[in-house]
């Protein structure tokens, strides 16, 4: 674990240094990343130019959901976004070159082509989050103040697990890498809107099957002083760290199973 983090840090540092060597190019791609993620929020603004409420939620409330989902996803994307290329590495055989180095493969795949420009998504999410907080006039309790950063970090953990599990899936179905987008980008898009917008079955699905609801919906609804549509007990709002740890453990197991399968079949 420590060896993996050290190697991850080394590779990330090298890529960042080489990206910053071309400063103009870096700034432009970061700006593009920022704008591309901003487009989602633009869609929400367009909707609110026509209505005052969506699913019973005001613009600042939706912006709060957007900001928390966007920041959590952005953190996971920055740290592990490169993992979606695993299928390609299996196909062209370059994964083998990572297996002969004395550091964990997961760290190498995750850090490969680390793109600092993906920080644009985090910045954009945080800006929307800050804006929403200034407009919401919430009564912050000490608990809420703990809940907010915990939500962002746990959310990043849950999305990170999705990235790792998605990459593990590519050991078996390398060409199906786009399926991962449904759960990463699709999940992030879903969580930008209030759960009241969606069908109950869908909300149940992302609570109990694929626990994305723990990224922001459950804790954010508490901060916003709203009921969650499934009427779950209140303590569930504090479960995200546990859910994140469980997801990461499962994703880790999936990754090891995938790697074991690769090492026995070579494909």
């Amino acid at each position: 674990m420590a060896e993996g983090l050290r190697a991850y840090g080394l590779i990330v540092w090298m890529w960042t240094r080489s990206a910053l060597a071309y400063r103009a190019s870096f700034l432009m791609t970061a700006a593009v990343n920022f704008a591309a993620t901003g487009l989602d929020f633009l869609a929400i603004l367009l909707m609110f130019s026509q209505v005052d409420r969506l699913g019973g939620f005001s613009l600042p409330e939706v912006a709060f959901l957007y900001g928390t989902a966007g920041t959590a996803f952005g953190l996971a994307d920055l740290a592990l976004g490169s993992m979606e290329r695993l299928g390609g590495r299996v196909r062209d055989g370059t994964l083998d070159t990572l297996l002969v180095r004395p550091v964990p493969v997961l760290a190498q795949v995750a850090a490969d082509r680390f793109a600092l420009r993906r920080i644009g998504r985090i910045v954009q999410g945080l800006l929307v989050l800050v804006w929403s907080v200034t407009r919401l006039e919430l009564h912050w309790t000490a608990l809420d103040l703990v809940l907010l950063p915990m939500m962002l970090l746990s959310g990043a953990g849950i999305f990170g697990a999705v990235f790792v599990a998605g990459a593990a899936f590519q050991f078996w179905a390398g060409d199906a890498s786009e399926v991962q987008n449904s759960f990463t980008y699709g999940g992030a898009t879903l969580l930008q809107y209030p759960p009241s917008v969606f069908a109950k079955e869908l909300v149940r699905g992302v609570t109990f099957v694929m626990p994305l609801a723990f990224v922001n919906w459950l804790p954010a609804l508490r901060i916003l002083g709203r009921q969650d549509p499934l009427g779950l007990p209140g303590w569930v709002d504090f479960a995200p760290p546990l859910v994140a740890v469980a997801c990461c453990a499962l994703a880790g197991a999936a990754w090891r199973a995938g790697l074991r399968s690769y090492r026995s079949t070579g494909s």
Binding site: M47, Q50, V51, L54, G55, A173, D175, A176, S177, E178, V179, N181, S182, G186, T189, L190, Y193, S196, V197, F198, A199, L202
Partner: peptide, 20 residues
């Protein structure tokens, strides 16, 4: 995989349009 992703995004967008 692309069809799957299009369908997932279709569902998400459809619900937001229903609300709108």
């Amino acid at each position: 995989a692309g069809v799957f992703t299009n369908t997932v995004f279709g569902f998400i967008t459809a619900y937001t349009y229903i609300a709108l």
